[in-house]
Simulated assay, not measured.
Amino acid sequence: MSASLLLQYAVIGLAVAVSAAFVAKKQFPNATRRLRMACALPLVREGRPDWVRAMGRWIAPPASLIGAGACGGCDSCGSASRGP
């Protein structure tokens, strides 16, 4: 297999992986959040090296405030910005 063909397969594989991640994040946000938490929790435990803990914090989903919005959901519905 030539190097250019290998590079082509790698680029196509990367594009498919990025596309699948984008669709999963948009279509299944709760499952994606749980998956990110499951991957990040073992990395941020005490006793891990600093670079591993930093990677775990990078993987972890952002913290959400429960009950902050009208429905306590994803904070993207815009219900708080609507007027009377």
Rank of each mutant, 00 (worst) to 15 (best):
V23H: 00
G78P: 10
G47M: 08
M1E: 14
G47R: 10
R57V: 14
L65A: 15
R48V: 04
R82Q: 10
W51G: 04
C39S: 06
P42V: 08
I66M: 12
P49L: 04
R57Q: 12
L6A: 05
Q8R: 05
M37F: 09
S2R: 10
P29Q: 01
R34F: 10
W58V: 10
L43R: 05
R33Y: 10
R36C: 03
D50G: 01
R48Q: 07
M1H: 10
L65F: 15
R33I: 02
L14D: 02
C39F: 13
Y9F: 12
A15R: 02
S79G: 10
A70S: 15
I59D: 01
V11F: 02
P49N: 11
P62E: 09
L35E: 08
G67C: 14
G56M: 07
M55K: 11
I59N: 03
S64P: 08
A24T: 00
M37D: 04
P62D: 09
F22Q: 01
L43D: 08
A40M: 04
G72L: 05
A31F: 04
I12L: 09
A68N: 12
L6G: 01
P84T: 03
L41Y: 11
R82Y: 10
A54L: 12
A80G: 09
I12A: 00
I12C: 02
A70D: 15
P62I: 06
R48T: 01
G56N: 02
A15W: 08
A21Y: 11
A10M: 13
L43T: 04
G72E: 08
G13L: 02
